[in-house]
Design a protein around this nucleic acid. Structure first.
Lengths: 254, 254
DNA sequence: CGTAGGTTTGACTGATCTCAAGTTTGGTGG
DNA sequence: CCACCAAACTTGAGATCAGTCAAACCTACG
C-alpha cells in the first residue's frame, strides 16, 4: 500500500482492432433504456482503443485529460493519495463503465484512474462525447444516472470505511463486486475470480494487506466463502449479506 | 453516535413568509453562470417553506420523496446507518445547497437527510424542478455540476476516513467547512461558529466523540486553531492545511 | 528454474475505543 | 433575572482491533 509504486504512466500501446463500443452502449442501456438511434450514435463515435497492462495509470490527479475513457475489458480503480503516502481506492470499474463522464465538466482530474488488470480502453474525444449528449438527451440521461449511482457507491464506501469493522468491510467489497458483476452480465454472483489483489482490497477498505488477508481467512472460517487462489465462492449468501451488512439498494440496479 | 436518537421525524411547521429562492439561485449561479431568464424561472418556481428544528429528518432512507428540498438557512447533513447501530455522516450542506437533485432520478432515498441546526427549507415539487431543467439547460448544467462536486467531496471523505489519522480527519472537516462557507459568501474562512456538535464531527470522521474532543484539543495544543465554545479560529492556515492534508482542488470552486 | 509479486504467519505495538464520571453550556420556566 | 435541566463537552484509566515489522511460502511467468 503506502509507499509502493506510484510511478509515471507506462507507455501503453495504441492499437486498432475490430472492437466496438457495444459493451458501453449495453451498459448505458441498462442504466436508462436507449433508442435505436441512440445506440447507433454511440456505435458511430470516433474512438481509438488502447491496450493497457495491469497497474497502468489512465489519468493522474491534476491532469487535464482530452479524452473520455470507456472500459471495454478488464478492471480499473479510482484512487487518491494522502500526504502520509497511503492510498485509498474509492471505487472499482467493470467492463462497460464510462470511466470519466465527470471530465466533461472538470478540466482537472481530482483523483487517479488506474488499471487493476490488463485492460482495453476506448478513448473518445471529450468534444465528441459532448456533442453526443447534446444531440441525444437519452444518452445524457443514462450518463447522469450512472454518475449518480457512482456517487451513491461513494456514500456507501464512506460508511463502509468509517463505521464497519474489518471483516464487514472486506465482505462488503466482495458483495458489491459480485452483484455489480452479475448486473453487467459478466457472470454469476456466487462464484467469481477476483481481479484485485488483497493489497488493492486493503486500499479500498482502509485496512492493511495483512489484515485483509486475516479477514478473508476469517470469512472462510465462518463458512460464508470458500477460496482457491483468487477464485471466491460465496457459500452462504444470507450469512454473507449479514456479515457484510450488505443491502444492494444503494446500487440502484433496475 | 451509535444508539442515540434516530426517532421518527418531528412534525415541522409548514409556514409562509416573504422568502425567496434567491439564496439557491445565487448558489447555482456560482456553480455555473445563469442568465436572467434562468434566475427568473427559479424565482417563479412554486414552493413552500418549512421551518425545521435541529435534528429534524427531512428525508429517510427508503422513502419516496415527492419534493426536492433546497436549504435556505441553517445546516444539514446526509448520513447512513450501519447494522451495528453506528452512524456515518457523508456530507454537510450549507445555505443555498440543493439538497436532493438526485431524487429527480431515484425513486427511493438511499440515505437520510437531517438538519443539524434549526433550518428553513424550500420544498419544490419534483415535477416542477424537472420541468425547470427541461426548459433551462443552463440550470440543468448547474445542478449537474453541483452533483459532480458533491461526488468529489464523497471521494475525498472516503480518503479522509480511510487513510488519515484522527487529528487530520478532524482538521480536514474544519478546513472544508471553512472554505465552502467562504465560497458561499457566508463569512471569512479563518473564524467561524461551528454548527455541528463534536458527536456529528465524530460521525463524519469515523471516530468517537471522545476522540474528536481530544483531537480538537490537540489542534489547539499545536497552535493551529483556537476555540471558544463552538467558535473556531484558524490561527495558522499553512500549518492547518498541512496537518489536515487539505487541498481545496477537490471542491472545484471556480 | 529463477525471480518478483502476492499471500500467509507470528509476535509485538499502538491508535482509538469503551466505560464511566465529572464539568460546562444554553435554553426554559418561574 | 435566576434556578434548573438536558445536552454537550471533558477527563481518566483500562481494553482491543488493527497496524507494524519481519520472515516464509506460494505461484505465475519469462
Amino acid at each position: 500500500m503506502q509507499l509502493r509504486d506510484v510511478s509515471p504512466a507506462d507507455k501503453a500501446e495504441p492499437h486498432r482492432q475490430p472492437v466496438s463500443l457495444r459493451t458501453v452502449s449495453d451498459s448505458l442501456d441498462r442504466l436508462y433504456p436507449l433508442g435505436d438511434d441512440d445506440r447507433a450514435a454511440i456505435d458511430a463515435l470516433p474512438f481509438r482503443t488502447v491496450d493497457c497492462p495491469a497497474n497502468h495509470f489512465l489519468v493522474r490527479e491534476g491532469q487535464r485529460p482530452e479524452y473520455c475513457a470507456m472500459l471495454l475489458s478488464g478492471y480499473t480503480c479510482r484512487h487518491k493519495l494522502a500526504a502520509n503516502g497511503l492510498r485509498q481506492n474509492v471505487s472499482f470499474q467493470i467492463p462497460g463503465d464510462v470511466l470519466d463522464a465527470q471530465q466533461l465538466e472538470f478540466a482537472r482530474a481530482d483523483h487517479n484512474l488506474q488499471t487493476i488488470t490488463a485492460a482495453t480502453v476506448a478513448l473518445v474525444m471529450k468534444q465528441d462525447v459532448q456533442q453526443l449528449v447534446d444531440r441525444h438527451p437519452t444518452i445524457r440521461h443514462a450518463l447522469w444516472r450512472g454518475a449518480l449511482i457512482e456517487a451513491s457507491i461513494f456514500r456507501e464506501w464512506v460508511l463502509n470505511v468509517g463505521r464497519r469493522e474489518g471483516i464487514a468491510r472486506v465482505a462488503h467489497v466482495l458483495c458489491e463486486f459480485a452483484v455489480r458483476r452479475q448486473a453487467a452480465k459478466l457472470g454469476p454472483p456466487d462464484r467469481f475470480e477476483l481481479p484485485m489483489t488483497q493489497e488493492q482490497i486493503a486500499d479500498a477498505t482502509g485496512l492493511t494487506p495483512v489484515h485483509v488477508n486475516r479477514m478473508m481467512q476469517a470469512l472462510g472460517a465462518l463458512g460464508v466463502i470458500e477460496r482457491n487462489k483468487r477464485q471466491v465462492t460465496i457459500v452462504n449468501w444470507d450469512r454473507m449479506r449479514e456479515v457484510a451488512d450488505f443491502d444492494p439498494a444503494y446500487l440502484h440496479i433496475a
